[in-house]
Design a protein around this nucleic acid. Structure first.
Lengths: 218, 218
DNA sequence: TATTTATCGATATAATGGTATCGATAACAT
DNA sequence: ATGTTATCGATACCATTATATCGATAAATA
């Protein structure tokens, strides 16, 4: 509930989730043209991404940058604004729990650096991989999770364990001081309000694909 | 544009994407309780998933099943309806292109069978892995893509190649008769209207996580 | 210099998706 | 038998997101 007389700070009116999800797309375009031109129009960005100019303009207005009529937006200013908003300007450390197939793939994905994400270590319960290095990252016994994470003040945990243990491992993460869980398991996690959970839902994505294909085959 | 007198067939009014994305969640619950009870209420499903009863009821109404007041929905009927809508009732074959880190992880993910998806083979250009079997799936030279895919009448292609080659490989897939591309690259693909592209956008997901974390740290 | 064009921002409108209300039904308990 | 409770479906309402319109600005061109 919003109290009426309260000052509505620009900083507090958060950008909408759909907008945030599009920001990385904009970033890709911006990085591409950064070297070749100083300004960019909403039309150009929209065309490259198959979006509407208006939507792009509104998104950019939402993150607080203003363009110049007949000129466009300053590319470097845009990049800076998006990086700041997404926290890509300074690296964030993360740990990964569950170094199975998917976990190992994520450990080997070097694209995260571009997004300001640095996976410092992995944890697992399988004695066969504990002690190993996977793509250069050490794999520790999950029993050590709490002490290491707390000491390093890590806030982000990437959850790639089997679904059956997702909830208990999530509980461990939270106890260890993790504030944000990037959840690759298909399990709906039960967490308190001050923990952020972002779900990567492959099943949902596949469902959309399947239903469209089914509809097209009719 | 909808002509006024036209009959509005129930079959053609497609279910909304947000609804489709929730169907796999419902499925999980339904499978869990299938053996223990014959009916299920929207309240129960909603509670388990942290959703609203009304939303669940509306979704289920949308896919064409009706419940019984004071009783609930028939579990098996629901399962059947969702499976049919998503095409999970009969297996769909798919091929995967790009057997790198992520590709190998997906090849090893046995959960897809539950979603009616069967990856029959992988393709890559790296001579070191061509000819190998990864998690039991053969890896072929990408040059063979067209002939094999066409002969097997495969419709779904999973794209896990590096971003730089995403577009040309997508073109190859389409030429080979693929109708639906599950795109794990961060590249916006340019395809004709009759090709379905479903994007798995990790960057978008991470962006949401980051921005929420940033907001929480304020 | 005047005109055209590309572009923006502000405001208004439309579409979509989510939520609330309420009457009806059937199981269960009194 | 009657009342209470859980549940559904239909309708109405609200919130969010996307799109359209239009006047203003500045660059480019005639």
């Amino acid at each position: 509930m919003l109290i009426d007389g309260e000052p509505k700070l620009k900083e507090l009116t958060s950008v909408s989730v759909p907008t945030v999800r599009r920001l990385p797309l904009y970033m890709t375009i911006l990085k591409e043209i950064e070297s070749s031109s100083e300004h960019v129009s909403s039309t150009l960005i929209a065309d490259r991404l198959g979006l509407e100019q208006i939507q792009v303009r509104k998104d950019l207005a939402g993150i607080g940058v203003t363009g110049q009529p007949a000129v466009g937006f300053n590319v470097r200013e845009l990049i800076g604004a998006i990086e700041r908003l997404l926290g890509w300007d300074n690296m964030r450390d993360a740990i990964l729990v569950g170094a199975g197939n998917l976990g190992q793939a994520l450990l080997g994905y070097d694209g995260f650096a571009r997004y300001g994400l640095n996976i410092v270590a992995a944890f697992d319960s399988n004695p066969e991989i504990i002690g190993m290095k996977i793509h250069g990252k050490p794999v520790f016994d999950i029993e050590l999770l709490s002490s290491l994470t707390e000491r390093m003040h890590i806030q982000i945990g990437i959850l790639t364990v089997p679904g059956k243990v997702a909830q208990p491992v999530a509980d461990m993460l939270i106890k260890a001081g993790i504030h944000a869980i990037w959840n690759f398991t298909p399990v709906k996690l039960n967490v308190s309000d001050n923990t952020i959970v972002e779900q990567v839902d492959l099943a949902a994505s596949l469902a959309v694909l399947s239903s469209k294909l089914k509809a097209a085959n009719k």
